[in-house]
Design a protein around this nucleic acid. Sequence first.
DNA 1: GGGGTCATGTAATAGGTTACATGATTCT
DNA 2: AGAATCATGTAACCTATTACATGACCCC
Lengths: 207, 207
Amino acid sequence: MATKRKVGNLLALAVMSYLSQRPMHPYELSRTLREHGDARSIKFNHGSLYMVVGQLARAGYITEVETSRAGQRPERTVYALTGDGRAEFRDWLAELVAEPAHEYPHFVAALSLIAALPPSEVVPLLHHRLAQLHQARAEIRGLIDTTLARGVPELFLVEEEYRLALLDAETAFVEEFIGKITDPQTGWGATWAQFHGESGAPPRAGT
Amino acid sequence: MATKRKVGNLLALAVMSYLSQRPMHPYELSRTLREHGDARSIKFNHGSLYMVVGQLARAGYITEVETSRAGQRPERTVYALTGDGRAEFRDWLAELVAEPAHEYPHFVAALSLIAALPPSEVVPLLHHRLAQLHQARAEIRGLIDTTLARGVPELFLVEEEYRLALLDAETAFVEEFIGKITDPQTGWGATWAQFHGESGAPPRAGT
DNA sequence: GGGGTCATGTAATAGGTTACATGATTCT
DNA sequence: AGAATCATGTAACCTATTACATGACCCC
């Protein structure tokens, strides 16, 4: 299991990745991560970065190499990746590539409880979702295109292409789901509605 | 934004869902959640349940209705959903259905950093992932089939069918990705390998 | 030259997980 | 009877997010 890593936050992986190229100080990491757009793929916030850097240092994966100062700004501690850190980085990344993790997307949770809403409410909500999915798709598509146009190799955009693939699959699923609810042949909508006391049946007084 | 909910943990949604059917005490919730298999869709652990119940009570979404005792076992506090709780439950669930959330799956993070590994290493890892994906698919398929055979309506398995759809999409994506790396026409493998100081020879599976 | 915003970090708070505790029931 | 497991909950410990602090640069 992945729970045995000394530092579990994926932000640490990005930090190690950048430090594997050259030593940096935390704020530089922060800026680089934001500018490079990594925040789209790895949850990032200012405070967590310092926390993660501290954890990595305690774990021996990175070390201070100097504390320089430029002008009169507060001094910045520069960190570098250690040998252990490099090994951990490679191993962890390899694991993430090779082993699918069991995760808990919000929509899965919603689906697991969706029977608690009446189908007459659910169908419009699903249509709303479809619209949002299309919009998200267009945004990602645009991001990919403009980035490619700037000469960035496609390899550095695979994660966005993966998102596209998932979005498309979800879109198809939602459309099919709507179909199953509304198609009078399948009967889903009918029994589901009755369960909620809808569709001509008298309002329910409790199960 | 979803951050404004007084209680943010999705486990709270499941708790409210069960309490909307009848009052229960925490341990009963715990058992019911585990038995019903909700733990597959919503991250669950014993400690968090009590925390969430406390949060819901402080927020006014649930209230103690009695503290019964059976035999000499420690007394159990029974909670019921309030009107506010019912409203919050419906509203939250509706939002989760209608609004796609930006999430951070591990594989997205891995893909965003994958260029840090040489392609000769990545290809076998991806093949390993493919095998795992197939296995996961078979397990879910089996779970669905046996549950359906027990007479549970398909509606209560939509979340697993959604998972299947995502798994299939991911499988297709990974296969295509492997193709792009190994196909000597596209050149991905070559330039990527050179970047790592490897020979430009396209890597084949099983190196 | 005073009001924003950038650069840089620490501290306070809330959230979540693991470990611990303890009486009851059941098994052998 | 002693061991194991269930039932039930609390406490200790980490993690993560928000809020706060402060000197430097930049604009008008």
